[in-house]
């Protein structure tokens, strides 16, 4: 034991101006600090994830509260929350064999079977990989679709923005947008969370008659039903939202699912 400890003793006995001691102390402090930070982070992750999941659910519920008549409709249908289903993004069909409650997006993104890598030019949302399945939340009454909520995410300015896009039964009119998670610059990009800005969304159209996705954030006055005022001073956050919606409503995202719904219904 004494022989084992003696090099350590020797190291600490060195002068504080000694080069070996300086570099050794720097490495030692860095190692111990990073170990402490990593261990706490890993151990606390389940608690933090539970908090974030509750927060996401709360934001979606909050969005439902802003939709006029939505709560009444839910009462009539006898449900207190939206129905969750998994969608196969490649062909747009419901993946009814899988249990929506057991779907884990993070695990799917790690698994090369359950997700695909996106080519750089197709990856407008900046997400690198896309899972093959995605949950959607819907409200139906007697087999008629009343509302569908699509979870979308993509790169903002300095964080991943997660949002929920609620679309009305015609599958083109936006009922509401909710930002469920973001970490962009407070006072600039983070203003996408403000109710005043989110109130600009209801009634906008995601696509024109030909089915081409047209929705975008613009600078200054939005003039067509496809345009929403961007946030001034947060161009990259605004572009991030446009790109994210274009991606998720396009062929790589919910495009096939939405066109199948338009043709065949639920």
């Amino acid at each position: 034991m004494a022989e084992l400890l003696s090099p350590i003793r020797k190291f600490f006995a060195r002068s504080n101006d000694d080069l070996v001691k300086i570099i050794g102390m720097a490495v030692l402090v860095a190692l111990v600090s990073s170990a402490a930070v990593s261990i706490t982070s890993v151990m606390l992750k389940p608690y933090q994830e539970a908090n974030r999941a509750a927060e996401r659910q709360a934001r979606i519920d909050q969005m439902l509260d802003t939709l006029p008549g939505m709560r009444d409709l839910m009462m009539e249908s006898g449900v207190d929350t939206l129905e969750t289903r998994l969608v196969n993004l490649d062909d747009g069909s419901f993946a009814s064999s899988e249990d929506p409650a057991g779907f884990d997006l993070d695990a799917a993104l790690q698994d090369s079977e359950a997700s695909i890598a996106l080519q750089a030019d197709a990856d407008t949302a900046g997400i690198k990989r896309r899972a093959n399945l995605s949950p959607v939340y819907l409200l139906q009454k007697d087999g008629d679709l009343k509302l569908i909520v699509l979870p979308v995410y993509g790169a903002g300015y300095q964080s991943t923005i997660r949002a929920a896009l609620a679309i009305e039964a015609d599958l083109t009119t936006i009922a509401a947008l909710a930002i469920v998670e973001q970490g962009d610059t407070p006072g600039f990009g983070a203003r996408i969370e403000e109710p005043e800005w989110l109130a600009l969304w209801p009634g906008k159209k995601i696509a024109d008659e030909t089915g081409a996705v047209r929705i975008e954030l613009v600078r200054g006055g939005a003039s067509t039903p496809y345009e929403v005022d961007g946030i001034s001073g947060a161009t990259r956050t605004s572009n991030g939202i446009t790109n994210m919606l274009r991606f998720w409503l396009g062929d790589q995202g919910f495009g096939p699912f939405l066109s199948r719904l338009r043709q065949e219904g639920l």
Binding site: F12, N16, D17, K21, I22, M25, A26
Partner: peptide, 8 residues
């Protein structure tokens, strides 16, 4: 404190 090199 006795083992923090003053230079760093």
């Amino acid at each position: 404190r006795h083992h923090i090199p003053p230079s760093i």
